[in-house]
Design a binder for these strands. Structure first.
Lengths: 311, 311
DNA sequence: TCACGAAATGAAAGATATTTTCGTCCCGGG
DNA sequence: CCCGGGACGAAAATATCTTTCATTTCGTGA
C-alpha cells in the first residue's frame, strides 16, 4: 500500500494526488480503518488540533501521542504527504484557514468587556465597511464637478467644527501642498466674516456629518449667496446643509453606539472623500501639482534624522 | 491554538515580537526600509509568493534569491520568527488563506489620467488595506499597556506635526470627551516646554509616520527622561523615535506614489490606532466615560437644527 | 583619493529535526 | 509449543536549520 503510493508519486512526479489542502479531516476518517492503532492515535491528534500539531516537531508529536517518530512519519505518508515536514506545512495552512474562516463573525457591537484584540478587529472591520460603503455611494458626477470647481478656484474656504474640523484642516493642508489657496475655518464667526469675501469662481466646502451643524451651515449659506461654488460633505443628503450646496458628497454612516461615537466612523468616510478631492485636483493640475509636492517634501527633509539601521 | 501560542508569548514576557499570522505582507512593507539589500531580496520573494517559498528549504530560498542561508535566517528573524522553520510555517498558512480568500488584488497605482471613479475605488481599496494591515500588525500587548497608562494618567500630552498633528488633535479631542486631561502640541517649542512638566504617572504620545521627525522626538525624549510613560505611534518600529518610547504602536505602510503621498495612507492607520486607544480607555474608565460622553453630546445639541425631511 | 571602521554577507562548522534502518515484540495459527 | 508476519520503536543516517567567523563591501572622514 504505502509502497504503491510512494512509487506512483515518485514515478509520475506528483500530479496524480496533490496532498490534501483542507480536506485533511475527511482523509483521516477515510483512512482511519486501514491504520494501525498507533497511527490512528497520531491521525486523530492531527485532525483534532491542526494548529497545535503544526507547532510540534516529529519528536514532539510522537511523545504527545505516545508513539515514536517512525510512526508519525508513517502516518504522514499514509495521509499522502512525502514526509512529516510536508504534513506539518499542510497543517499550518489548514489552521490558518480555520482561523480566517472564523474572522467574519465579529459583526457584533463593541462591549465594555471586550478584550483589546477584539476591539482592534471590530474597529478595523467597521472602518473598512465605512470606506466600502462611502466609495460605493459616492456620486462621481458630483465629485467630478467639485474637483473641477476646486481646480479652477481663486480661493477655497473649508468649514468644519469638532471632529469634522480636523477633516477640514486635512483637506486644506493637502490643497496648500499643491499650490492652491485654501483655508480651514473652525471659528464660526471668522468663517462667516471670510465667507463674505467670496465671489463667483471661489469654492466653499462645508463638512458636517449630521448636516445640521449651524456653525458650518451659516458660512456656507453666505458663500452660496455671494455666488461661490459650494460643496457639502455630509452623511445626510437630505439635511439642511444641502440647501446651500451646489454639489453634495455623501459619506456613509456605519452603526454607532455608546463606545463608538459618531465622530469615529463618519470621520473615516469624510477623509476618503477628502482624499478623492485631493487626488482629483492633483490630476487636473498635474503640471503644477507634481513639482509642488516634491518641493514641499524636500523642504521638510532636514527636519528628519537619518534612520538608524542597526539595533 | 495559534492564539494560545501567541498569548503565551505575549503574557510570558516575550514582548518583542509575537509571530505574525497573516500580517506578513504588512510586516514586510513595514520593515523593508530597515533591511539590507540581500534581506530585502529575501523578504520580497517571500511576500511575493508565499506558497512557492513555503515549499523551499533554507538552501532553496537562499539560492532562489541569490543569497546565503544565513541571510535567509536573518530575514526570518527580522520578521519576528524564531527561525526559518517558523517563517515557513507562517508562509504555508498565509498561502492557504490567500487561496481560500481569493484576494482580488487591484494593485495598480493611481495614474494621472485615471477616471474619477477609478480614483475612488483605488483609494478606498488602499485605505481598507491599510486598515487590515495595521489591525493585523498591531501588538495588542503594547496597546493594552498604553491603554492602561492612559487610563491612569494624571495628564497626557500628544505630539504630532503636519498630517500627524491632526491625528494628535483627534486623539486629544476624544480623550477630553471622556474626562481625561489631554493636550495636543504641534508647536515644537511649546511641546518641549510642556514636556518638562511631565513626571511619572503622566503619559506622552508621539505620532510620526517616519519616526524621524525631530520636532516630535524631542518632546518625547524630554518626557521620557522626566519619567513619564511614553508611547510612539509610528510606521517604522526601528526608527529613532522608539528609543524614547516605552510602548511602540506600529501602523502599516501602504504603497505610496507621487499622487498618493505618505500622509494619506499613514493617516488612516494612525487614526485606527487612535480609535483603539480611545475605546480601550473608555472601556477601562467606563463609569466615568459613559456619562461624560452623553454630557458632551447633549451640550452640543442646541448647535444643530432639526433635520428637514421634505424636499 | 585613500585609509579606516562598521556593517553586510556567505562558507562552513555545529546543532536539530527528519527519515531510514533494523531488530524486538506481540499475536494468531499450526 | 513453536513459527511467520506485521506493528512498533531505538538508534543510525541523512537532511535541514542555525551559528560562527572570516571576508567583502560600503560609507565616512581626513
Amino acid at each position: 500500500m504505502t509502497n504503491d503510493v510512494k512509487e506512483i508519486f515518485g514515478s509520475a512526479g506528483a500530479p496524480p494526488a496533490p496532498p490534501a489542502p483542507a480536506a485533511l479531516a475527511a482523509k483521516v476518517r477515510t483512512l482511519a480503518p486501514s491504520m494501525t492503532r498507533s497511527m490512528q492515535r497520531v491521525a486523530e491528534a492531527v485532525a483534532d488540533d491542526p494548529a497545535g500539531c503544526a507547532a510540534l516537531t516529529v519528536t514532539g508529536l510522537a511523545e504527545l501521542t505516545g508513539t515514536s517518530e517512525a510512526t508519525v512519519v508513517r502516518t504522514a505518508r499514509l495521509l499522502g504527504y512525502p514526509g512529516y515536514r510536508d504534513l506539518r506545512l499542510a497543517l499550518a495552512g489548514l489552521a490558518a484557514q480555520q482561523q480566517s474562516g472564523r474572522a467574519p463573525a465579529i459583526t457584533t457591537d463593541i462591549a465594555v468587556d471586550d478584550p483589546i484584540a477584539d476591539v482592534v478587529a471590530k474597529l478595523a472591520y467597521d472602518e473598512q465597511q465605512t470606506l466600502a460603503d462611502t466609495a460605493a455611494g459616492l456620486d462621481t458626477v458630483q465629485l467630478a464637478a467639485a474637483v473641477t470647481a476646486l481646480a479652477g478656484a481663486r480661493r477655497t474656504d473649508v468649514y468644519g467644527v469638532g471632529a469634522s474640523g480636523l477633516v477640514a484642516q486635512d483637506l486644506t493642508q493637502k490643497l496648500l501642498r499643491i499650490g492652491l489657496m485654501a483655508h480651514a475655518h473652525s471659528d464660526p464667526h471668522l468663517a462667516v466674516t471670510n465667507a463674505v469675501q467670496l465671489r463667483s469662481g471661489d469654492v466653499a466646502i462645508a463638512i458636517t456629518h449630521s448636516g445640521t451643524t449651524g456653525d458650518v451651515i451659516e458660512p456656507l449659506r453666505v458663500a452660496f449667496e455671494r455666488g461661490a461654488t459650494t460643496v457639502a460633505v455630509t452623511g445626510r443628503p437630505d439635511s439642511p446643509v444641502t440647501q446651500y450646496a451646489d454639489h453634495v458628497l455623501t459619506t456613509s454612516t456605519a452603526r454607532e453606539s455608546e463606545l463608538r461615537p459618531a465622530a469615529m466612523s463618519s470621520r473615516t468616510g469624510q477623509l476618503l472623500v477628502v482624499d478623492c478631492l485631493f487626488v482629483g485636483v492633483a490630476q487636473r493640475t498635474y503640471d503644477a501639482a507634481a513639482p509642488a509636492l516634491s518641493a514641499s517634501y524636500e523642504a521638510l527633509a532636514h527636519r528628519h534624522r537619518a534612520v538608524r539601521k542597526g539595533p
